[in-house]
Design a protein around this nucleic acid. Sequence first.
DNA 1: TTGTAGGCGTTATCAG
DNA 2: CTGATAACGCCTACAA
Lengths: 357, 357
Amino acid sequence: MTEAAAPRPNYDDVVRVRADQAIAPRPSARPPRIEAVARLAGVSPITVSRALRQPEKLTEETRRKVLEAVAQTGYESNPHARALRSGRSTLVAAFISNILSQPFGLAIQGLAAELEPEGYELMIGQTSYSYAKEVAMIRSLRSLRPAAVMFTGVIELEDNRQALRELSIPVVETWAYPRDPIDMLVGFSNVDAGAMAAEHLAARGYRRLGFIGRAGGRGALRLQGFRAAAERLGIAIAREVTVPEVIGITDGRAALRRLVEDGEQVEAVFCANDLLATGALIEARARGLGIPGDLAILGFGDNDAAAEIAPGLTTISIDAYSIGRRAGALLRERLGGVAPQMPQQAIDLELILRGSV
Amino acid sequence: MTEAAAPRPNYDDVVRVRADQAIAPRPSARPPRIEAVARLAGVSPITVSRALRQPEKLTEETRRKVLEAVAQTGYESNPHARALRSGRSTLVAAFISNILSQPFGLAIQGLAAELEPEGYELMIGQTSYSYAKEVAMIRSLRSLRPAAVMFTGVIELEDNRQALRELSIPVVETWAYPRDPIDMLVGFSNVDAGAMAAEHLAARGYRRLGFIGRAGGRGALRLQGFRAAAERLGIAIAREVTVPEVIGITDGRAALRRLVEDGEQVEAVFCANDLLATGALIEARARGLGIPGDLAILGFGDNDAAAEIAPGLTTISIDAYSIGRRAGALLRERLGGVAPQMPQQAIDLELILRGSV
DNA sequence: TTGTAGGCGTTATCAG
DNA sequence: CTGATAACGCCTACAA
């Protein structure tokens, strides 16, 4: 199966470390049940349950006794039994369109930062921008009954939207600003993002614009705003290149190649995400184009690489981590029985000026 | 909360789409239970269960009848009840040290590609290279009782290793080649990777080497191999720069700055991952260093950006997607009751020659 | 404030 | 090959 030069790899002799916070040693493989804790504390099982879920309902004395027994046994309640009986689980499902995308990863980190300390487990699924997958996942949600769901995007299929509503659990959509979100929302207007791009390029004096982006979803929304603003400003969009999928920087290079080789004179191009923009920038440089002299490039999303590449990529940035964080906070509140003050939040778009425009 | 110029963002008017594969309409919010299916098929609940889990035990006639009723009702069994009663869940837990790392993301994709078609759900947790987090996660595994666990790394704390063994579920470790894995393994030798780096740089005639990498974990292993091979070849390691954490390209820039400003003459530097290498390359170029003339740079990991940056980054590459894929295949077999032929697999290291060495 | 009874939905076990 | 019974571990509902 492997054909390494050496017949067998050398071993990685990892230095073993002992835990400072040791896991309580467990004689049996089976975790302790609530009844064992109850016996140890000299109370009934339900009292243990209450000590963990509604501690305020117990005498301080009882509570102390029980929690001590919990600590001693290393007890943790069985999430399946809990979910089965109460109908609520501690699993929060997050659906991400592409796990390789840096902004989505950041959002998930923000979400985790809010939810994990509260004892929720995060389940991550990848929709891969596919309706079919979305359908399958939402179908599985019906029986998994997570505590809540978060999407890095908005749900477009009407049937899926309905199915999600019927789950009667908190839902947060993100990354767009639809008129009628399913439930909660931490988003930004993609239409405005496109308009912002056109306005900035116009203000810099560019008159013949280009666009590179995905044909559907948010790419289409950004293009819509870009077009509308360009028209309003009396500026021409000379060329629109749409790509079916964005996997890596390569897609951006290919797209710019199409744009340039098409012959249309384009002074400035708006790339609907920074992966495309980075690729476009690299390809432009490889073709000897001066940036922004021969071609200005404006990105969207503020990737890690966008800042470091030369010339730095001018881009419209959103704070992806904060989107995740806010989404997590909304879910946390709702799961705690509180109605959030602002269940639908708009995130600012910020123009980051670097060298490429 | 938001201070956008416009008082309110424009709406993203998403075009609603109807599902081609519609979710079966459900009059009540509660999903159908096994009993409803049984009644419809005219059999007992346990027969329905068997039709789904051990179809070979039923008459073809009965099976057909039941599966039809399943399809008609859109029934899916409740995972919590199933896990509670059977002790096995369909949840597979994957622990990833850093969700923003591209190779880890690829591995997760590979894992999902093997497991999701089989009906397993993927739960992803981030350990953030922290022992404390690892302890907490493994603790929660005890009660969650997933079907299997995968780590993008190996577990170092002896207590955690023991706790994982006691779960008695399939475990795959990856990204290293320890002598005594907990259970299954799809890894490569980090020590060999370091040696490979030193050997290649030596073969190219470099005599004064540098190293940039994390102080612990795999970084330390790669350094260990790098050092040993250099010594064997009679080559000097003039400077080792260790970084506490690698979050982005910036860390690589800072590390190279330290390396260069230190005054030690270094002809070639091995960066223990491509994020560091990319940062180092950018910083070196920014300082006017010719690459590889003034400084050769060798990376590890083969990021997306590594190929596109100029000059292309020469790097030791591993096939991260395939690691995930193989790990998934191992788990799939074991979960299906089969003992895999090669429960411990070595992944090849491949040197990708581009311009930087 | 604490406890008792019972069931969430499924499948292991044993019987027919 | 199919079915009856009981139990997985917890928490809701109600009672004391």
